[in-house]
Write a protein that binds this DNA or RNA. Sequence first.
RNA 1: GGCACUGUAGCUCAACUGGAUAGAGCAUCGCACUACGGAUGCGAAGGUUUGGGGUUCGACUCCCUACAGUGUCACCA
Length: 602
Amino acid sequence: MENSLNTHILLGNAIRSAVKSLYGEDLTESQIQLQKTRKEFEGDITVVVFPLVKISKKGPEQTGEAIGVYLKEHVSEISGFNVVKGFLNISLSENFWLRFFEYAITEQNFGIGTANSKPRVMVEYSSPNTNKPLHLGHLRNNFLGYSVAEILKAVGHKVSKVQIINDRGIHICKSMVAWQKFGNGETPESSSMKGDKLVGKYYVEFDKEQKRQIAVLIQQGIAEDKAAAQTEIMSEAQDMLREWEAKDPEVIALWKKMNGWVYDGFAVTYKTMGVDFDKLYYESETYINGKDEVENGLKSGVFFKKDDGSVWIDLTGEGLDEKAVLRKDGTAMYITQDIGTAILRFKDFPDLEYQIYTVGNEQEYHFKVLLKILKKLGFDQADKCYHLSYGMVELPEGKMKSREGTVVDADDLMEEMATVAEEVAKEQGKLEGLPEEEKKHLYHIIGMSALKYFLLRVDPKKNMMFDPKESIDFNGNTGPSVQYTYVRTVAIARKAEEGGIKLNSGFVESGVHLNKWEADVIRKIYEWPEVLAEAARTYNPADIAHYCYDLARTYNSFYHDNNILREADVASLNLRFALTVKSFEVIKTGLKLLGIEMPERL
RNA sequence: GGCACUGUAGCUCAACUGGAUAGAGCAUCGCACUACGGAUGCGAAGGUUUGGGGUUCGACUCCCUACAGUGUCACCA
């Protein structure tokens, strides 16, 4: 935005020269405090004068008054001011707001940065294990990671969305063993199950058999903790892992087959979620890099070897513990693989500036350790790795918990959301008379918006409570309610167009006066670029969600008690039409960054 | 037990990073509307920001302390 439309630059400079001329001193950046004027006071922008009283050596009111007089005299955009306690409230002229708005409607990508104008950022999210289906926790993870990536893209970064697939290790061997023993050659086709569900089923089967065998051993007088490691089925899984590492052709073939099923299943789930990836990393490939890095670190003395052959790092000097990075049998661990992957990624993308890991907060310690290790290995880009940590999602007691455990399956939940959307829509008589196929699509869109909006509107780092019923309400702070407002603005815009009202500029010349509502909406739109920039800086999509909701409400507040297309002269009609169009453009852009689709009708 | 995060209206969440009288939505109550114990609109009520100290012009925000919740402290991932 040009400087004459940027209030911070405009007022910042003016205040600087005001203080210079009144009191003969230069101000630092931190002494100029500007904020949006609160609703209950008159004005647009507020200068906090407390930091200036030390310089003026006068009371806050006096100081504010003096600066206010100076500003009004020297800045043509300022139409008035008032001082309340230590707050100087400044009103900007209609001319300023109209000029801004004319600028905003000519920018089709208002607020969005120039594509690829900023350094590359990598966002990792999802990163599932391949032995079981995606669950509720993955939903928050995926939506958060996807949204952050889209936000960064919107402000101009090159973005690579990636995930690391944990396709290797004892967990997948468990599913394989169980399938061999109990599967009778069952496939996704023969059982008409999603592939990930099928493999997950055998993971559970393994667990059952394991428990059964443990019970038998305990009966034979073996201690419980030892029994777990001595079962026949467990040793079969361990054998299989060893065979896998030795690249036994039969084991590898089975591993590929079952992982293939899982990927097919995941693909369906990701499609429903509406997320995607630019590049996939597989642990089965990257763990080698990790072992190499450990090897190098061992030579340079960063790591040390214990008598049994396991390799460690001593982080007690950092206030952490000793940490193993390689098992005594030389096999790689979770962290080994992560060391390799981090370094590999910066090699894969030489222009990579920053890396964001979207991973749950239960792994905060893990990442602290990982970054320390990378740093000790002399990998300076460790400072450019950020753990985007998020809290757990809980559900209201009882409902929607799957039979056995506490795990809520992602596919089931998303399907349930569409069903609830259907119920609510039917109850309220919406969508009547639409073809069945279109209805189905809309139920899906509504259900997903409810889910996404609800999960994203909460500060990521906090644990949260997800209530499906509350999330899908067409009133209140929900995705569907924002969608609903959006659809209404589309209808109004359509009606205006049919009525021959055209979107054009020239508001400044036409001499329109802004009523309160119009001024409110313009001011709200003015905030958009700042909100987006802030969200990109803090990796927090919640800011965007709240903003979109606020804008929708601000817009709505007028719609409810006025017919905005009536009772106005031509210039005002044009302005209102333009406000309608711009409002829904901004809302649509905002929600798109959250991965929420906008229906054309509802 | 050590470390980390969290604690705001009955419930789910905000509060522009130290600013004005702590805001929304559900739920509740009142009014309007009416085929309706519904949907909608308007309005009201709801708070010692877990307790206690401190820092300053000013604290939900920063510091100390107590309490409560969650996570984590594996040759698991």
